[in-house]
Design a binder for these strands. Structure first.
Lengths: 133, 133
DNA sequence: CTTGACCTTCTACCACGGTACAACGTCTAC
DNA sequence: GTAGACGTTGTACCGTGGTAGAAGGTCAAG
């Protein structure tokens, strides 16, 4: 299997596959006599794993850390559990921040509907976004 | 007022002030005989406005668009209202995405606690992050 | 007159996950 | 033998909001 076929099968671009190799998510590929990268189906499994892990919000660096443990011959379960736990804490914090931002934007939207543009003083850039905090 | 004093007063670095000038959020500063940028208090007001707008989640490009309208002599109220409205829609969408991710991570965390590492097959990188979707 | 703190410009770098292009080699089909 | 589709490497760019450093000019105090 050449890189283009692999990429098509996995739904990514050939360049992305090379990027993953460079970043250590894929092993250095075997090469044919012409220097072309040659793959077998296990790389397809790996690419699909990468996609699933990305959908779980893991970064490429984190995914790489999982793959490295697996390639060491150890089950990465404990590591994956801790990554997921950390990521969950992170996601919850981001949700809290966004919820606060949402509330602030709702407040500002209310102001923007209530305030009269004519009251907008010149020395202030915008009376909606006033230093109310 | 020189750039360092202005920056200190606004709680940003001098380099940030220069960046804002380059990005069009601040007018090209007046220069002293020695070429130093010289500011008056109105720039402090503007820097504070930028900070407030950033806290409302607006990007520098969006803040710049507000400032440009103001500098044209028009009250930017309608524009600000529409920016806030768009941003609010965006924030709500991001919260929905993160909430879905949170649910998925919670599911995975449950799996990671329930599954036995000994069951972790070698041909699969990780049985927690299996293609369950 | 020198030290140190300030200022100037320009350039490059950070994370993040790619994408795009150049300049070149290779393989297949006609 | 040549076109066109593939492959190779290397490099640079995207957005975002800065930060860091080099190499130099300026200014006040001692």
């Amino acid at each position: 299997m050449l890189i283009g076929e692999l990429a098509d099968a996995a739904g990514v671009s050939a360049q992305t596959v090379r990027l993953y190799e460079r970043k250590g998510l894929l092993p250095d590929a075997d090469r044919g006599a012409n220097g072309y990268r040659v793959y077998d189906d296990s790389m397809l499994v790996r690419l699909r794993f990468i996609r699933v892990a990305q959908e779980a919000g893991l970064t490429l660096a984190e995914i790489r850390s999982i793959i490295e443990i697996r390639d060491d011959g150890t089950a990465p379960c404990a590591h994956v559990g801790s990554l997921i736990d950390t990521k969950l804490t992170d996601v919850r914090a981001r949700i809290r921040h966004l919820a606060a931002l949402q509330a602030e934007l709702e407040r500002l939207l209310g102001r923007s509907q209530a305030l009269d543009p004519a009251d907008c003083a010149d020395d202030d850039i915008c009376h909606i976004l006033a230093t109310a905090k």
